[in-house]
Design a protein around this nucleic acid. Structure first.
Length: 262
DNA sequence: ACATTGACCTGAGAGC
DNA sequence: TGCTCTCAGGTCAATG
């Protein structure tokens, strides 16, 4: 789930549920999801504070605490939030639970424990420390910057799009979608793309991510011509009705249409 | 320095 | 039904 569009949808969910409510406590049931902080420290930082606002950089979600600092959430491959009242009804795989004075709770749910919670005083410092590139939807990340990044990479274009150190936010699903919409084969080397390809790739990157957000990151709500709705081996390509193929690139499954993407 | 692989977790779904 | 095997939207350390 949690690539850039999914995290943006989660961010909006947080905005309309838990902002400006006093945090009663946080309980962490899987300590290994805490990244470099102790449960005690997290507790002391959030107790009797509020989440004031949110910010997203790539796949990371930042929740600003009243007073000072940010709580950072990373959702791994399976993470999401659920806001609910009855504590007995906490979702399975709840790894951390924030309780608020209004008797509601926010569950940080991870089936696989690949997500993280940590703290930072400053987003820029965190982004730098993690070696994260610019957010894929950042207005300042323009065509020129995009071309420079892609021309400097010898890996496949799919791996290049997923490399968080150069562009942050795109994962396995959306890299496939962006390449499908551009008609580029995922194994083509990034630094061998033509100028025209790069123009189209950049445009598709922004469009696909924005469209996905507008669709609440729900494939069923996305345009019919999106690969996401047919991302399965043997399914029919929405453009040419040929068969969707599956190959392995850098250890990940890549779905594409051999006919449309050459 | 860069790119690719394996390990990390847990469960769902496929195949027998 | 039950067992085993493979795979899953991410990242990091180790390897080439």
């Amino acid at each position: 789930m949690p690539e850039l569009p999914d995290v943006e949808v989660i961010r909006k969910y947080v905005d309309k549920t838990v902002l400006h409510q006093s945090i009663n406590k946080v309980e962490v049931s899987a300590k290994d999801i805490l990244d470099g902080i102790s449960e005690k420290h997290l507790q002391s930082q959030v107790k009797e504070r509020e989440f004031e606002s949110t910010y997203r950089h790539g796949k990371h979600l930042f929740a600003k605490l009243s007073g000072d600092g940010w709580v950072i959430f990373h959702f791994g491959m399976t993470g999401y939030f659920e806001y609910f009242k009855d504590k007995e009804k906490a979702p399975k795989h709840t790894r951390a639970l924030f309780s608020f004075d209004n008797c509601y709770n926010l569950a940080f749910v991870l089936q696989r424990k690949l997500g993280k919670i940590t703290l930072t005083k400053d987003i820029d410092i965190f982004v730098k420390k993690q070696n994260l590139g610019p957010d894929a939807l950042d207005k300042n990340f323009d065509l020129e910057a995009f071309k420079e990044v892609m021309q400097g990479m010898k890996s496949s274009v799919k791996s290049a799009l997923m490399n968080q150190g150069h562009i942050t936010g795109i994962g396995n699903i959306y890299s496939d979608e962006i390449l499908f919409q551009t008609g580029i084969h995922p194994k083509v080397k990034a630094n061998q793309l033509s100028n025209r390809d790069l123009d189209r790739l950049f445009k598709a990157m922004k469009e696909v991510l924005e469209t996905a957000i507008d669709s609440q990151a729900d494939p069923a709500k996305m345009p019919e011509h999106y690969l996401l709705r047919h991302r399965k081996k043997g399914e029919k390509c929405p453009a040419c009705s040929g068969e969707i193929a599956k190959i392995r690139i850098s250890g990940r499954s890549a779905y594409f249409c051999p006919n449309c993407q050459s």
